[in-house]
Amino acid sequence: PEEVRRLVEELYRKGVSPEQVKKILKKQGIDEREIEKVLRRIG
């Protein structure tokens, strides 16, 4: 979803590592598979 992409990109631009991005967003209840999809697209 758009909102997940925005959150991931925001953290990524701040220099947060992909592993940390995953941890942070998982705590917020976001599906890990969604996060990984976005990270793959960015990375």
Rank of each mutant, 00 (worst) to 15 (best):
K26T: 13
K22P: 02
P1K: 10
R41P: 15
P1F: 14
R5H: 14
L25F: 02
V38W: 14
E3R: 06
R6K: 12
V21S: 02
V38I: 11
K23E: 10
Y12H: 07
V4T: 07
L25N: 00
R13Q: 06
I30L: 13
K27A: 13
P18S: 12
E32H: 04
E19K: 13
L25T: 01
V38S: 02
K37V: 07
L39T: 02
Q20K: 12
I24T: 09
P1G: 10
V8K: 00
Y12V: 14
E32C: 06
R41A: 15
R6D: 05
G29D: 04
K22H: 06
P18M: 07
K14R: 11
R5N: 14
K27R: 11
Q20L: 11
L39M: 05
I30T: 02
L7A: 09
I30H: 13
G43E: 15
Q20H: 09
G43S: 13
V16R: 09
E10F: 11
I35K: 00
E9F: 11
K27P: 05
Y12Q: 04
V38L: 05
P1H: 12
R33L: 12
G43P: 15
R33D: 14
E36M: 04
R41Q: 15
I35M: 02
K22E: 04
E34Y: 05
Q28Y: 07
K14E: 09
E3C: 07
G15M: 04
E34Q: 06
L11K: 01
G15P: 01
K26G: 13
K14D: 07
V16D: 04
E2P: 07
E10M: 10
E3W: 10
E10N: 07
V4A: 03
R6I: 11
R33I: 12
K37I: 12
E2G: 11
Q28F: 09
R13Y: 15
I35W: 01
R40C: 01
R13P: 01
E3H: 08
D31I: 04
Y12G: 03
E2R: 10
I24W: 04
K27T: 10
E19G: 13
E19R: 14
I24F: 05
E32P: 06
K37T: 10
